[in-house]
């Protein structure tokens, strides 16, 4: 039996980024999803969009090369690329709700088998942090989620039904965790790739929702 390996965050995001198609306009959420931008594939052009109205920006700026007027949604200084454009906030969300964003990648506390997800409020804390998440969830063509498979104390995150207040109903199309890659189908979570050394049964044991196991189930696939 091969050694069990849980995927690092960069590997999880690399796997989602492999799904991006040439020419896609991509909005990456703050935190783990921004790691998707480290995956490079010279055969594709990816256009990065951020809520603050910049579309077509490039990699993070190196120290000494920052422009104080140019940041991504997480406040990181980024670099311009030829063809970049800047618009105001209402126009930026016009792109989002208007269907211009091919995929948004976000983190989540919970994802349910019907495609609901929750990432803005924990009832034990007052208030919430929505940012652009609800607009992106309602407007992007595809919602991908990157998150750990379980909570730190082993709790479930892939659920029959979300327990936390949801961000949007029924929108998640694909989910990567440190244990597997899942499509959300009309029947529920479909496990299509697994982390090295993990069997479908072992992943099911750590998952509340009943998994559908893909006929073509294989180990995580990475570009060589």
């Amino acid at each position: 039996m091969a050694e069990k390996v849980k995927l690092e965050r960069q590997a999880m995001c690399d796997r989602l980024a492999m799904e991006f198609q040439d020419g896609w306009i991509v909005n990456l959420g703050v935190g783990m999803p921004t790691l998707c931008s480290n995956y490079s594939d010279s055969s594709r052009e990816i256009i990065n969009h951020a809520e603050n109205g910049v579309v077509g920006y490039g990699p993070l700026a190196k120290e000494g090369e920052e422009d104080r007027h140019l940041v991504n949604a997480g406040g990181q200084k980024v670099t311009p690329l030829p063809g970049m454009a800047c618009v105001h906030h209402a126009d930026s969300f016009m792109m989002i709700r208007g269907g211009m964003i091919d995929v948004t990648v976000m983190g989540a506390y919970e994802v349910a088998e019907n495609g609901d997800f929750a990432n803005w409020r924990i009832p034990s804390r007052k208030g919430g942090g929505i940012g652009g998440a609800m607009d992106l969830a309602a407007g992007a063509k595809r919602v991908f989620i990157a998150m750990e498979h379980n909570t730190r104390d082993g709790g479930h995150k892939l659920l029959n039904k979300c327990t936390l207040p949801i961000t949007a109903p029924g929108v998640v199309k694909m989910l990567v965790t440190d244990l597997g890659l899942f499509e959300i189908t009309s029947e529920g979570f479909k496990l299509i790739e697994h982390a090295p050394g993990w069997s479908a049964e072992e992943i099911q044991e750590l998952t509340e929702a009943k998994l559908i196991i893909s006929d073509g189930l294989k180990e995580f696939r990475f570009r060589s």
Binding site: I96, M134, A138, P169
Partner: peptide, 28 residues
């Protein structure tokens, strides 16, 4: 307020529009 709704509510005020319908936040 969701960020895009915040932006559009401001735009709406500036534009003299009485309100708008958005799919953002439906079901939440």
């Amino acid at each position: 307020v969701p960020q895009g709704t915040l932006a559009e509510r401001l735009r709406c005020a500036a534009a003299g529009i009485g309100g708008f319908y958005t799919p953002t936040s439906v079901g939440t």
